[in-house]
């Protein structure tokens, strides 16, 4: 930590007092980009669910879910501050940069965790609140504290935490969850490995310095590239399922097939191009497009189910 940070936050006896972090630093602790994706996917689960919810209650529930997701991100940053400090990508985060004290981040994360679960339980129902609590626990404890530093399958299993929001969304609407949100869960779950491993291929030096056993560091880049292609080959057809099950329409069918083929094409390029800067560019291209891919799938589901743009297809499955 910097000398300036010590001066601001420590008394003569070295006891930390308080930071001068601003509201935007606390907001950054919530991982806003992840929160945005959680809002889109949870809303996708809500609109695709068989039922309806009062718009005010739906909005309040969505707010609670997104704050809960932000709280788990905050607890993750609190726990991982030591490894964030040695990775170039994360060294500028509020805790390693010295703008927020670890104790402040912990208090902030715990307060928002408890608050978001209580609010969701009050405005929606107990099942959705319990699922949000489990999601926060899974991300902060199971993934951050245990899996991340223990196994190269960390983001595969940990990906479940990111995949729960559509199920919570459906639970808000119906008080239950069924095949609809299980399929949406599967899409995000299968999307996570190729998304993160594409980044890990480029940032393997960072992860090695931090001692994180990401797949490229443990099994090697070649095995990682094969796994990326394997997961993408399963993901692309699974992402078409909503169109075959009746909660995705014609636009969803077209978008999921075209973007799914693009994901497969980009993953095959990652497999083929293995040396130097072109290899990094191929991995970055897959990483960037994967974000757009997931966003597009859920945005189309939202438009079709929420805005009445559905050109219904015959139900083949489910």
């Amino acid at each position: 930590m910097s000398a300036a940070f010590d001066q601001i936050t420590q008394a003569d006896d070295g006891v930390a007092l308080s930071s001068t972090g601003e509201a935007r630093d606390f907001f950054a602790l919530l991982k806003p980009r992840v929160m945005f994706l959680v809002i889109v996917t949870a809303l996708g689960g809500m609109v695709a669910a068989p039922g309806a919810v009062n718009p005010v209650i739906g909005f309040a529930a969505l707010l609670a879910i997104s704050v809960g997701a932000g709280a788990s991100g905050c607890l993750n940053m609190w726990w991982d501050a030591d490894i964030d400090a040695v990775m170039a990508r994360t060294a500028g985060r509020p805790i390693p940069a010295g703008r927020i004290l670890p104790s402040e981040a912990l208090a902030f994360g715990l307060t928002l965790s408890v608050g978001s679960v209580l609010v969701l339980g009050l405005v929606a129902n107990l099942l959705s609140a319990a699922m949000l609590a489990f999601t926060i626990f899974f991300y902060a404890v199971v993934y951050s504290m245990w899996l991340k530093r223990a196994t190269p399958q960390n983001i595969v299993i940990g990906g479940a935490a990111g995949a729960f929001p559509p199920m919570i969304g459906e639970a808000v609407v119906t008080g239950d969850f069924g095949l609809t949100s299980i399929v949406l869960f599967a899409i995000i779950f299968l999307w996570t490995p190729p998304h993160f491993w594409a980044l890990a291929l480029v940032k393997s030096g960072d992860y090695a310095r931090a001692g994180i056993p990401m797949l490229p560091n443990v099994a090697g880049p070649a095995a990682t590239r094969r796994q990326i292609v394997a997961y993408t080959l399963v993901l692309a057809p699974v992402a078409v399922l909503p169109a075959l099950m009746g909660f995705g329409g014609l636009i969803y069918l077209i978008v999921s097939v075209v973007t799914g083929l693009a994901m497969i094409g980009l993953s095959l390029r990652v497999l083929r191009v293995t040396e130097g800067e072109p290899a990094n560019k191929a991995a970055y291209a897959l990483f960037g497009f994967s974000i757009l891919y997931l966003f597009l799938l859920f945005a189309v589901l939202l438009a079709e189910n929420g805005l009445g743009l559905m050109w219904a297809l015959p139900k083949v499955l489910g």
Partner: peptide, 30 residues
């Protein structure tokens, strides 16, 4: 530093005010 802490306090006050409004509207809806 004090200016930054003041801005942080104002943001906290706005969040608390927003929460009051939030609970009021949700109560009406419920």
């Amino acid at each position: 530093d004090m200016a930054r802490r003041n801005r942080r306090s104002v943001a906290l006050a706005l969040v608390l005010g927003g929460l009051v409004l939030f609970f009021f509207i949700v109560t009406l809806a419920k």
